[in-house]
């Protein structure tokens, strides 16, 4: 006999409905992206890759995709480089001001995106860099590195500090103990933090919209303006591409560190 479940059938059904609600747009946009007509009709008609081709045919989309990939590819490693030492300091040392610094480091996470956007707009106007990739990269790094700190600190808290002591006891210098013992065990945190920052940077709209201009845009900003002007599934095709990317990432996470482990480090 099965163990009695903790929840009743109606509760399970409600949960199922909520899950359907969560998946509905994802499923729907996938249908729409392959829909032959630019105008939506149910059931979907035909099957076409036209909108994917269209996405890549539009120069502004290609440029925006490239810009977004450059931004994310710079921001993710930059955030990890900042976050690894910071997480080590916060998780491994007790020092005066630790709690205050921790709160300070996490503070960008509670500031609304629009406020961050305007701040960095003011900054780039003052410094004279103008708009474009550099201010976007700087702003995204300053805004997103706390995600990486959080993931790595959670990872470090889960590690046994005595392993480092064991390594020192066996003759490893402080640096070798970090390199051979701690760093290999930080792989889940590096992966989780890196992916989180990468996705945050590639998807960010509220900061980027203030720092882009007519010449340089990022993917979310460009799709937003496309949606305002056109009514066809080109953006749905882009969405399918992004969702496929995230599905691949989730598979990779699951294979490399396990989904459960990843969520603990979220």
């Amino acid at each position: 006999m099965n163990a009695p479940r903790s929840y009743s059938t109606p509760v399970a059904a409600l949960a199922g409905l909520v899950m359907a609600f969560i998946l509905l747009p994802v499923a729907f946009i996938a249908l729409y992206a392959f829909n032959e007509s630019g105008y939506l009709r149910l059931p979907p008609q035909g099957l076409t890759f036209h909108w994917f081709a269209n996405f890549f045919a539009i120069a502004r989309f290609r440029a925006a995709l490239e810009a977004s990939l450059i931004v994310s590819a710079v921001v993710a490693p930059a955030c990890l480089l900042i976050a690894v030492p910071a997480a080590l300091a916060l998780a491994r040392y007790r020092f005066p001001g630790r709690d205050a610094i921790n709160a300070l480091i996490m503070s960008p996470l509670v500031v609304p995106g629009v406020v961050i956007g305007i701040s960095f707009l003011s900054l780039s106007a003052r410094v004279g860099t103008g708009l474009g990739l550099v201010p976007i990269i700087v702003a995204m790094t300053c805004f997103a590195f706390p995600f990486a700190v959080r993931a790595l600190a959670a990872n470090l808290h889960g590690l046994d500090p005595r392993l480092e002591e064991a390594a020192r006891n066996l003759g490893a210098s402080r640096f070798n103990a970090f390199l051979f013992v701690t760093l290999p065990q930080l792989r889940p945190g590096l992966l989780a933090g890196g992916i989180f920052v990468f996705v945050e940077a590639i998807d960010n709209f509220s900061i980027a919209v203030f720092l882009t201009n007519a010449r340089i845009t990022t993917l979310p900003v460009e799709s937003y303006s496309y949606i305002r002007d056109f009514d066809d599934p080109t953006v749905a095709a882009m969405a399918v591409l992004l969702m496929s990317l995230s599905a691949v990432l989730v598979f990779a996470i699951d294979r490399l560190v396990g989904l459960d482990r990843f969520l603990e480090l979220k």
Binding site: D160, R162, L163, E165, A166, A167, R168, N169, L170, G171, A172, S173, R174, V181, Q185
Partner: peptide
């Protein structure tokens, strides 16, 4: 420093590198 002492320790939880 600890690494130069030649005082090998068996840790309570063994602290094997996983």
């Amino acid at each position: 420093p600890p690494e130069k002492r030649s005082t090998a320790m068996l840790f309570q939880n063994y602290s094997l590198f996983p």
